[in-house]
Structure formats: C-alpha cells, structure tokens
Amino acid sequence: MNIVVCAKVIPASSVTIEIDPNTKCMVRKGVAHELDPAAASALEEGLRLVEKQGGEVTVVTMGINEVTTGIRNALAMGANRAVHILDDALAGSDTLATARALAAAIKKESFDLVLCAAESSDSYSGIVPGQLAQLLGIAPLTFAKEITVEGKKITIKRQSESGYDVVEAELPALVAVASGINEPRYPQLKGIMAAKKKEIKQCKAADLGLKPEQVGSAGAREKVLSIGRPPVRQAGKIVTDEGEGGKQIADFLVELKVI
C-alpha cells in the first residue's frame, strides 16, 4: 500500500514562538525548525504499516526553506521520498489555503492512505485533516488511537469523550492520529546517510495547478485583524521551598477559605 504522510515542520521546541506585528503571522524565517512530534507519530504509523504490508511512504509538507531539516529527519526515519511545496506565494495561508495546497500535491501521488497528525503542535487548529479529507473526497478518520488495515478495509479506534469508538472504512481514507498513538523512532546513522540520497521534490503552487488567488494570504478566508496581549494576570507570589513549602500552601488555602 502507498501512504502519503502530511508532515508539518514547525519552529523547534526550544524556540519561543513570536507573532510578527506586521504580517500578523508566526515568525518562521531564520528560526530553527524540527519535524513536529505529532507529525512524527503519523509518519511512524505509516512506516509500521508499510513494513508489514509493503509499499512506499511519501512525505508531503509545505513551508519555507527552513523546514528542510525536518524533511531530512522524516526521510532518515524511513520515508521513501518527499514533496516540498515551497513558494513565497503561500505565505499567509490559513487552514483552508493550506489544505488546498496539500490536497493538490497529494492528488499527484498514488495513495491508499493519507496520514497526518490530528493537530499540529504550533497552531493546534485541528481542522486541516477534515479539510483535506473533504477536498480529497475520502473518509475522515480523525483522532485515531490505533490503526488496523486488512486488505482494503481500515479500522481505527477513535478517541471519544467517554472512551473510544471503533470506526471502519474502505481505502482510500484519511487518518489523523491522536498524540500518544506511538513512540516515534529515532533516525539511525544508516537512515541519516540514506536520507541524503533520497529525493525531495520541490514544487510551487502553479505546478500543482493552483491559482494565485487560491493560496497564501490572497486565498485565505481567515484574516487576523489585530494581535494583542491578554490582560496581564496579576503577578503571583513565588517562594522557594526551604522545608516549609507545603505549609505555606496550606496557609494560602486557609486564606482562600478553601479549608
């Protein structure tokens, strides 16, 4: 089976994400990037499936030059090849414009299954998977905690408010994996070396048949009007425990009339 994994590459966890007051977008240029751990989990599921059943894993991502480190990491984990949608015209994309670009790139691939994270670890909107499934006309199997594929049938355990639902569909389908579905592998030296020879196909919006008015800030329906800071919470009291920390909390609870 052939699998496409949508893998977002995001500012590294060591980076404090800022919003640029002019573009009103997250500052990404010049910032260290890494493969989103949530996307690494989606990729891990894909790699395990092809290890069992054969086939190839193609990683599709969209982003600026800085995301290349994350793509290399995905290839080093074991993805066979990568498609990188790289185009300045994509700057300012909202979820819908992003999903459109990803869907256009995925349509150029032959796939039985599309895997992605239920939500990215930088913006957490959580709707790109549902948008992608709709654009591709395939079943949206979101919030998957476990995936089983038998022939053309895919079954997932889907997170629910009270536990999980068992959901089945026929391939092709889209599965968005919940965080914690697996522990993604670390790339080994052999994988890192092999990754250097693997293909990263770069493409622009026009190569995917997208019109300028469909992508980037021109295609975005969502417009950020202003960015601000919420009312500052009054600074609390910070103490260092010198053997009385627990008692200090108890005193505070008395003050609060909790006890």
Binding site: D94, T95, L96, I127, G130, P140, T142, R221, E222
Partner: peptide
C-alpha cells in the same frame, strides 16, 4: 471531535474557511 470535523468539511464545501 465532531465539531472540528464538521467545521473543517463545511469550510471546504462552502468555501468559507473557519475560525478555530
């Protein structure tokens, strides 16, 4: 779970986008 999936799909069908 349901709300997100519905908003996602409808934002495509209606070409409206969505605010999360």
């Amino acid at each position: 779970y349901a709300g997100r999936d519905l908003a996602a799909a409808l934002s495509v069908v209606l070409d409206s986008g969505a605010i999360t």
